[in-house]
């Protein structure tokens, strides 16, 4: 049976979960799914902070329509004001320090743009460290230049240096969208796990979307299977520019 992201990450109340990774590795998808999983799992408030300054095409606000009214009361989206969302400017919301210091909420922080993007997080480091955090790096080994542990280790170095935070774990998100096979997922997990061993950090989750998750579980090794979480993929480009949500 696949696991929920909330149980795989199991954050404490007040903690920040920092999601980083190379461009296009699936940070925002993971952030949305983790936030929805956390808000569905417990009574705690969940704050989603969009600190990805390099993806002006997407916005997180759309995910509010996916939750129940009761969950919506406990889910807070922290992102730039609506009129600046697609302004193609690196704008952070006001009050961010105060929000990140909130002891009552779990914060899921989406940090974009490789090491350069991760560097933007450094100014908030104090607030994040004070309440405790986990830094997780999402990897898709089927993105260009991500096929081996050596390349992944370079990315991890850059992100840890850029954020000034300590690495907690890795998330395996190897996929080719609906063309993904079980062996893609398994091989991706193996490569990411071997990179994690160098840093002595675990792969905390293997994520697979509904598009290819069916029957996946029994084809994975026990190691990968016990970390498997099935996620929803939200077509954010079309949410933003499409006159209909679904084509």
């Amino acid at each position: 049976m696949a696991h929920s992201l909330s149980s795989l990450f199991a954050p404490r109340i007040g903690q920040s979960i920092v999601i980083a990774g190379p461009s296009g590795s699936g940070k925002t998808e993971l952030t949305i799914n983790l936030a929805l999983s956390l808000v569905g799992a417990g009574p705690s408030r969940v704050m989603v902070c969009d600190l990805d300054v390099v993806k002006p095409y997407f916005r997180l606000r759309d995910l509010m329509r996916l939750v129940s009214p009761e969950q919506a009361r406990r889910l807070e989206i922290v992102e730039p004001p609506a009129r600046l969302l697609h302004a193609d400017l690196p704008v952070f919301p006001a009050r961010l320090h105060a929000l990140l210091s909130d002891p009552e909420a779990i914060k899921v922080i989406d940090v974009g743009g490789d090491a350069v993007g991760a560097g933007t997080l450094a100014q908030f480091r104090g607030s994040i460290v004070a309440r405790g955090y986990g830094l997780y790096v999402v990897i898709n080994t089927l993105r260009p230049g991500m096929r081996d542990a050596t390349s992944i280790l370079k990315v991890l170095d850059n992100i840890v240096q850029g954020t000034g935070l300590q690495l907690t774990g890795l998330v395996a998100n190897t996929n080719l969208q609906d063309e993904t096979t079980a062996s893609d997922v398994q091989q991706g997990f193996d490569i990411i796990q071997s990179a994690g061993m160098v840093w002595q950090v675990p792969v905390v989750a293997v994520v697979a979307s509904h598009e290819y998750a069916e029957g996946l579980e029994r084809q994975l090794t026990a190691d990968a299977r016990e970390r498997l979480a099935v996620i929803d993929v939200f077509n954010r480009i079309l949410d933003t520019v499409g006159s209909q949500v679904r084509f």
Partner: peptide
């Protein structure tokens, strides 16, 4: 592993 990669346009 497949010869394909996942890329942004």
């Amino acid at each position: 592993m497949s010869e394909k990669v996942l890329m942004k346009g």
